[in-house]
Design a protein around this nucleic acid. Structure first.
Length: 293
DNA sequence: AAGACGTGGGC
DNA sequence: TGCCCAAGTCT
């Protein structure tokens, strides 16, 4: 994309964001690097609406990394509630411990230090550096990837995994000024979340409809590799989820309760030790389990 | 590098 | 009614 076109894209998206940005707690004046970090962990594969109440409860209870680091991992898992992927609670706790040990209790400023924390990958490190510290980073999440795939590449959906070409496009479009780049990152994410959605994009209200390559091409249908959904019924994940729901809601869980929650013996006898191995559960007495103390 | 890893809401 | 999707990370 040439420079004038990129500039037009920037202006349209940034102006739109100015008028339509949601007032989310991790964006407000009260937001801290820590609240941003907590939100990023919770938002990994989980919708904003479900994160909102849990995020508020976490920040109230653990206003700083040191507060969380001083708690047991089990409490973190319990407070995680039904957000899903409870290992994220474990990793956030471990990240808080690392922050206290290696960074004096302050969320690190630099991408490389962030990336070294448990549960922090390229996206989360870029997001924290950008949103919490106003730095210039390519922030490639599913929303941004979809927006760029459509607007720039003219296809409905991006490849299953981030490609070099995709990163090059995102890099070439990143505004030079750090503050503008940071706003561009949230703004493109917001556009993907609210307008350029996966199922039913609102092209009639899209600020960049006139510039969109996918629209210009007549909205060609996706023809890439099959986008695989995840099996659920009868999987280990479902079994583990049942057991964890039990453990979250009670101080401890008996073998009988687990058997009732998941009658299929072989799978149950694989998942229970699996949860213990993952640090999500501990055996407190023979035949009795609980969240880690 | 494909697959594991939770949960619930919307169409 | 199911199927698809939601600010990914780790192995």
């Amino acid at each position: 994309m040439d420079a004038p076109a990129a500039s037009a894209l920037h202006d349209a998206v940034l102006d739109w964001y100015d008028d339509h940005a949601r007032d989310l707690p991790w964006r407000g004046v009260a937001a801290t690097p820590w609240s941003v970090m907590v939100s990023e962990f919770m938002l990994q594969q989980t919708p904003v609406a479900r994160v909102l109440p849990v995020h508020a409860a976490w920040l109230e209870r653990w206003p700083t990394p040191a507060d969380l680091a001083a708690e047991s991992t089990g409490e973190a898992v319990r407070m995680w509630g039904r957000l899903g992927y409870p290992r994220r609670a474990l990793r956030l706790h471990a990240a808080a411990v690392a922050i206290v040990e290696r960074h004096g209790g302050a969320v690190p400023t630099w991408y490389a230090d962030l990336l070294a924390l448990p549960g922090v990958g390229d996206y989360t490190a870029s997001a924290i550096a950008s949103f919490a510290y106003g730095q210039r980073h390519v922030v490639l999440d599913t929303n941004v990837r979809r927006v760029l795939a459509r607007a720039v590449s003219g296809v409905e959906f991006p490849a299953p995994a981030v490609t070099r070409a995709e990163r090059d496009v995102a890099t070439s479009l990143l505004p030079d000024a750090p503050a503008t780049a940071a706003t561009w990152a949230v703004a493109t994410m917001e556009l993907g979340a609210l307008v350029c959605t996966a199922r039913q994009p609102s092209c009639d209200t899209c600020p960049i409809a006139e510039l969109c390559a996918w629209r210009a091409a007549g909205f060609p249908a996706y023809d890439g590799p099959p986008r695989r959904g995840q099996a659920w019924a009868g999987t280990d994940r479902q079994c583990r989820g049942r057991i964890m729901a039990l453990a979250r809601d009670q101080s401890s869980v008996s073998t009988a309760q687990v058997e009732q929650a998941w009658p299929e013996r072989e799978q149950r006898e694989r998942c229970l030790p699996g949860l213990v191995a993952d640090g999500l559960l501990t055996q407190i007495t023979p035949g009795r389990w609980s969240l880690p103390g």
